[in-house]
Amino acid sequence: MFSPEGPSLRELAVQALSSVEHGYDLLAPKFDHTPFRTPAPVLDAVASTLRRIGPFDDGLDLCCGTGAGAEALTKVCRRSVTGVDFSAGMLAIARERVKSDEPRVSWVRGDARALPFGADFDLVVSFGAFGHFLPRELPGLFGQVHSVLRPGGCFAFPVLAPPRPTSPAYWMLSGFDAVMKVRNAVWRPPFVMYYRDFQLGFVQRELQRIGFDIDLYALPEFGHRGDGSPRVRMVAARRRP
């Protein structure tokens, strides 16, 4: 499915009936051949914007998966890059992809809801992971990010403009979320993966409440919608001194 190197429909079904952690362990060898991997243009656009608002010394890729985001951070951070993920399978692929080229990069297995770090970073990024957290979990997640950033440090992530209700994408994503919610109501363990529960207004309010100041940067590489608003933004939340 997706490509000759990608997972089959049966493999995706087995993954979807597993826990999030085990599902990604199973998917890891073929993950980079699926649409779930953050596209290179998004990684490059975020890295370019971060270079403009830096400098940064030590970066953390939160829920790093197979390491594409951490690899992008090597173009931004001057001293070190760390990737953290709770899937051993995804981390194994990340180590294999990046180990020979970037000795500054390290990998840590850990849960984003209980990060095993002190205030060791001046940059934390995350790409495409927020759908794996329920809305009630996000304040705790943001609190963890706040705790590992040095004062003045930056938490950055891209956000796509939500599709309009008249677009096919809106109904496709809504349908996917509905199917996942039914699945989680009747099957255990749950597999949390929702596309429409991450609402920028709620996220901004929670980040500000926890102690971040927020800037939004349009990523011009992706153009604008009909009303002039950018299709993709980067959120840059600074930990207050």
Rank of each mutant, 00 (worst) to 15 (best):
P4W: 03
E5Y: 04
V14E: 14
S18Q: 13
S19M: 06
S19A: 08
E21F: 02
L26W: 04
L26Q: 13
F31L: 11
D32H: 06
H33N: 11
T34H: 08
P35V: 00
P35K: 07
R37K: 14
T38D: 09
P41Y: 06
V46G: 06
V46R: 00
S48R: 15
T49C: 14
R51N: 12
R52K: 11
I53Y: 05
G54Y: 05
F56A: 06
D57K: 13
L60G: 09
C63D: 04
C63M: 05
C63H: 01
C64M: 02
A68P: 01
G69A: 07
G69I: 00
L73H: 07
L73R: 05
T74S: 03
T74L: 00
R79G: 06
S80T: 11
S80L: 00
T82D: 03
V84M: 03
D85R: 02
F86M: 13
F86G: 06
S87W: 01
A88Q: 12
R95T: 09
R95K: 12
R97A: 10
K99C: 11
R104M: 12
R104T: 11
V105A: 07
W107F: 11
V108G: 12
V108M: 11
V108T: 15
R109N: 09
D111Q: 12
A112L: 01
A112M: 05
A114G: 12
A114Q: 14
L115D: 08
P116E: 01
G118Q: 08
A119E: 14
A119N: 13
D120A: 15
V124R: 00
S126F: 03
F127G: 05
F130N: 07
H132R: 06
F133L: 14
F133M: 08
L134H: 13
P135F: 00
P135R: 01
R136F: 10
R136K: 09
L141R: 03
V145M: 00
V145T: 09
V145P: 08
H146C: 08
H146T: 05
S147R: 15
L149V: 13
P151V: 10
P151Q: 07
G152S: 07
C154T: 15
F155Q: 03
A156S: 13
F157A: 06
V159D: 02
V159S: 06
P162H: 00
P162G: 04
P162I: 05
R164P: 07
P165K: 04
T166W: 13
S167D: 13
A169K: 10
Y170D: 14
W171L: 10
M172W: 14
M172I: 14
L173G: 10
S174H: 12
A178R: 15
N184H: 09
W187Y: 12
W187Q: 12
W187K: 12
R188S: 15
P189Y: 02
P189W: 00
P190Y: 00
V192F: 03
M193C: 13
Y195T: 15
D197I: 07
Q199V: 15
G201A: 15
Q204S: 11
Q204C: 10
R209T: 11
I210Q: 14
I214Q: 02
I214E: 06
I214G: 05
D215S: 14
L216A: 08
A218G: 10
L219P: 01
P220L: 07
F222K: 05
H224V: 13
D227P: 06
D227W: 02
G228W: 03
R231I: 10
V232D: 02
R233P: 01
R233A: 02
V235Q: 01
A236V: 08
A236Q: 03
A236I: 04
R238G: 03
R239A: 09
R239P: 04
